Amino acid sequence: MVLEELNEHSITIKKVVEVLIADIEAGSELISSTIKNGNKVLLAGNGGSAGDAQHIAAELTGRFVKERKPLPGIALTTDTSAITAIANDYGYEHVFSRQLEAFAQPGDLFIGISTSGNSMGIINAIQSAKNLNCKTIGLTGKDGGKMNGMCDVNIVVPSDTTARIQEMHILIGHIFCKAVDALF
């Protein structure tokens, strides 16, 4: 079983390297230019993707590898009072879009994470980000779902296995953080 998991992981990494380098570079440039311009990065996802959003935000506000100033990375997945109030009053599919409307400014970047690319909460948040003149990056898997064509950059991990997709999302998030570190 262990060998099977490692082999599947290895195959997914090889596919990512083969087909996603340009998209990951485009995403790295987008997050770097956002930070260079003094704007913030807002992130959201559900379940494990919420954890990934929080992880990437923490790497920005704390540090990744290099000692540098703290940077504005905000995970919209952490305020349980806001999430439950918005879900109760407007529906769960609006918990991230409402927060974006409160916090995002033109020039900011929203990173929406959805393994299927079909999470309505993330899709609504992408639309809100666009309406607010924010740039958008999608981290998806499978076939990219409804997020295809919505994001400035949609990085679609070529796998149908949720665990492999999430593993690649955090790897891609770390690549983004390394690009940001290179600015300092």
Rank of each mutant, 00 (worst) to 15 (best):
E5C: 13
L6D: 14
L6K: 03
H9R: 06
H9Q: 11
I11A: 15
T12I: 01
K14S: 04
K15C: 14
K15V: 07
K15E: 15
E18K: 15
A22L: 01
I24N: 07
E25P: 02
G27M: 07
G27F: 02
L30N: 04
I31Q: 06
S32R: 10
K36L: 15
K36Y: 14
N37Q: 00
N37K: 15
K40R: 05
L42M: 11
L43K: 03
A44T: 07
G47P: 09
G48D: 06
D52V: 07
D52W: 03
A53H: 07
A53G: 14
I56P: 08
A57T: 03
E59R: 06
L60M: 00
L60W: 13
L60A: 08
R63A: 13
V65H: 07
K66H: 12
E67T: 03
R68L: 00
P70E: 11
L71P: 00
L71N: 12
L71Q: 01
L71D: 01
P72G: 15
G73P: 05
A75H: 08
T78Y: 11
D79W: 07
D79Q: 13
T84A: 04
T84G: 04
T84M: 05
A85F: 14
I86G: 01
A87G: 12
N88V: 01
N88A: 10
G91P: 05
G91H: 07
G91M: 13
Y92D: 15
E93A: 07
H94A: 03
H94I: 01
S97P: 11
R98K: 06
L100P: 08
E101C: 12
E101I: 06
G107C: 00
D108F: 01
D108K: 09
L109N: 13
I111R: 00
I111S: 03
S114K: 03
S114Y: 01
T115N: 04
T115Q: 08
T115C: 00
G117R: 04
G117Y: 09
G117F: 02
N118I: 04
N118R: 12
S119E: 08
S119W: 08
M120W: 13
G121Y: 02
I122T: 00
I123L: 13
N124L: 10
A125P: 10
S128I: 08
A129L: 14
N131Q: 14
N131F: 05
L132I: 06
N133A: 15
C134D: 10
C134Y: 09
G138E: 02
L139Q: 00
G141C: 03
G141M: 10
G141P: 04
G141D: 02
G141T: 05
G144M: 13
G145N: 02
G145L: 09
M147S: 08
N148D: 14
M150K: 11
M150Y: 15
D152A: 05
N154L: 11
V156R: 06
D160R: 06
T162W: 02
R164Y: 13
I165P: 05
Q166G: 09
E167D: 11
M168L: 05
H169T: 07
H169C: 07
I170R: 01
I170L: 14
L171A: 05
L171K: 15
F176I: 10
C177I: 04
K178N: 12
A179I: 03
V180N: 11
V180R: 07
A182F: 00
A182G: 10
L183E: 12
F184Y: 15
